[in-house]
Nucleic acid binder design. Structure first.
Lengths: 146, 146
DNA sequence: CTTGTTGCAAATAATTTGCAGGCAT
DNA sequence: ATGCCTGCAAATTATTTGCAACAAG
C-alpha cells in the first residue's frame, strides 16, 4: 500500500500504522477543516457510518495514544464528554457556539501577556491554561435571534 | 433552633432548611476561606469525618440544587472530577496550583474586554467563558523547585 | 517471528435516579 | 397533614482494562 501523509505522522511518533489509527487521524483532520471538535462517541459513530468495524474501546485507546504523542489535544468543555482536536502546533484558545458546536480558534497576544503578568503577581509559575468562550455564532443568531 | 445566616440563604432560593443543606453550605464557606474548591467526594468525606450521616447521592443532589439556585458554581478543571465553589456574585477567573490544588481568584478588566472584542470580531454573542490558569504556586515552588 | 494492536466483554469511576420512609413547614 | 427530602441500592454514562486472536515490521 502507498505511503500516505498520515502514515508518516504515525511512524514519526512511534505508532504502528494500522487501519483504525489512519482512519481516526483522517476523521480528525476532516473535522478540523469543518471547525468541529469530536467526542470519542462522535468518532466511533462516524467510523461505523463509514462502514469501518472499529470498536469504541479502540477509539478511546487511539485518541489517548495520540494525545500522549502530542498529535491531539483533549478539551473538557462545559459538557460531560471530552472533545478531541488535532494539535496544530500553535497554541490557541477557543470560541464555542452553544447551538451548533462550531469551534473558532483564536490567539491573542495581549491576553496571553496579561495572563503571564497576573500569574507572576500571584507568585505562580504557569504551565498552561485553558480559555473557552461560549456563545452564539453569527449563523445561529441569524437563524433564530432568540 | 435559632435562625442562622445559612438558613436565610436557603429560604431565599426556595429550598427547605435541612441538615444536609446547612452542613454542605457551611463546608463550602469554610473551603472558600481556605482557597479550596471541593469535589462532591471531598464534601462527602468531610461530612463523614465530622460524624454526619449524609449519603453521597444527597451531596450530589444538594450541590446540583445549589447550582440551579445560583449559590454555587461548578467547574470542570483538567481533572475528571468536577469541583464546586460558592458563588460570590462577582465574576472571576482562576489560578490553580497543580501540586496543592490551591485556587486563587482574580479578575482582570483588560482580559475581559479583549475577550468581548474578540467575540465580536468573530460574530459571536458571548454568554460566558471560563479561564483556568494552571501552574505551581509560590509555596509549592519553594518547597521543591522541581 | 515477536510485539504491538484490536474487538469484545467485563470492570471502573463519576454521577443520577427510583423508591419507601422521614422531616420541615 | 402533605409534599419536599433523604438514604440506600440500583441504574446510567463516560472511559478503562483483561484477554485471546491478529497483524505490522
Amino acid at each position: 500500500m502507498p505511503t500516505h501523509q498520515q502514515d508518516q505522522e504515525l511512524r514519526k511518533v512511534g505508532l504502528k500504522v494500522t487501519l483504525p489509527r489512519v482512519k481516526i487521524l483522517e476523521l480528525l483532520e476532516e473535522a478540523h477543516r469543518d471547525n468541529r471538535h469530536l467526542t470519542a462517541e462522535d468518532v466511533f459513530r462516524r467510523l461505523r457510518d463509514a462502514g469501518e468495524d472499529i470498536g469504541l474501546a479502540t477509539v478511546y485507546r487511539v485518541l489517548t495514544q495520540f494525545q500522549d504523542a502530542g498529535l491531539v489535544i483533549k478539551h473538557n468543555f462545559d459538557a460531560d464528554q471530552a472533545v478531541f482536536e488535532l494539535e496544530s502546533g500553535k497554541h490557541h484558545d477557543h470560541l464555542v457556539c452553544l447551538r451548533c458546536s462550531k469551534v473558532t480558534e483564536f490567539s491573542d497576544p495581549l491576553i496571553e501577556q496579561r495572563q503571564q503578568e497576573i500569574a507572576e503577581q500571584h507568585g505562580f509559575r504557569l504551565t498552561h491554561h485553558s480559555l473557552y468562550m461560549y456563545g452564539i455564532c453569527s449563523e445561529c443568531a441569524r437563524r433564530s435571534p432568540g
